[in-house]
């Protein structure tokens, strides 16, 4: 039986709750879990002041309620599973190294920043800076997967180095800005300045997009590796058009202000 947390009181200022993580809750009794410390503004309060606990931790945590003002859920987690029935606040899954987070609603900004491994699935939309590096960091996401079924805002995959980010809807501006390596797949439309300053890595989009002048058209081709990605994405419930499997992609190289070893693949039709 999974541990269940239910938000019984909406906080008037955001809560910082990095204790909501399998790593922090394993081998604790219900009473000990209730006494875990969270930050309410600059005050430290026990978890039970805002969450009602039931069940027992068996590697899985289910959280009910609107968590859009709860920050750092699953931060630095390395195993287990967190399921959130509603929306969730910023820094969810920050620097996580393993395990899985499933968000049935929307996620706010900074989803999975600087994560090393594991998987985050968001059924709704996500905010800015998905899988990015924190300000000042030269390396962002270093592994794992972030799957967002809806839209995301700006700077998705900023300075990411490894891993996969998939956006089922549209992405905002600066998708893959300064990315070092890794893969971003956008099934909707992308905003402007995609891949600005990217060194390596792949950004794949199902629709045409206006690119920076520092990207040059290399060729049109049918990348075999994308078929594996699309097959996988279809299997996890994303709407993949069958024409993508055998379609042709424009390959754009860039960013020439950097190493020029990155690529943006835009679907060119059959």
């Amino acid at each position: 039986m999974a541990l269940k947390l239910n938000l019984h009181t909406q906080p008037d200022v955001p809560l910082e709750a990095d204790c909501i993580s399998p790593d922090k809750m394993q081998s604790l009794s219900k009473h000990e879990i209730e006494q875990l410390i969270i930050f309410h503004g600059n005050r430290q309060v026990p978890l039970k002041d805002f969450f009602e606990c039931s069940g027992e931790f068996d590697g899985e945590i289910n959280i009910d309620g609107d968590l859009s003002r709860i920050k750092h859920i699953g931060a630095a987690m390395s195993f287990g599973k967190i399921t959130i029935s509603g929306s969730v606040g910023i820094h969810t899954g920050a620097a996580m190294t393993g395990g899985e987070i499933i968000v049935e609603g929307d996620a706010s900004d900074w989803l999975g920043p600087e994560m090393y491994g594991g998987k985050i699935t968001v059924k709704g939309n996500a905010g800015h800076m998905v899988g990015s590096g924190y300000r000042g960091s030269t390396i962002g996401m270093q592994g794992g997967e972030i799957i967002v079924h809806g839209n995301v805002k700006n700077e998705t995959g900023h300075v990411m180095r490894r891993g996969l980010i998939v956006v089922g809807g549209n992405s905002g501006d600066f998708t893959g800005v300064n990315m070092v390596a890794g893969t971003i797949i956008v099934l909707g439309e992308m905003g402007i300045r995609t891949g600005a300053g990217m060194k390596r890595g792949s950004i794949v989009c199902q629709t045409k997009s206006e690119l920076l002048p520092t990207f040059t058209h290399s060729c049109d081709y049918q990348p075999l590796f994308l078929q594996h990605y699309f097959k996988y994405l279809k299997s996890i419930g994303l709407a993949i058009n069958d024409s993508l499997f055998n379609g042709s992609f424009e390959r754009w190289c860039g960013d020439s202000v950097e190493l020029n070893r990155g690529e943006i693949l835009l679907y060119a039709g059959k």
Partner: peptide, 8 residues
Amino acid sequence: KLQPEDHR
């Protein structure tokens, strides 16, 4: 100021 990542 240049290296906030070191501080975190």
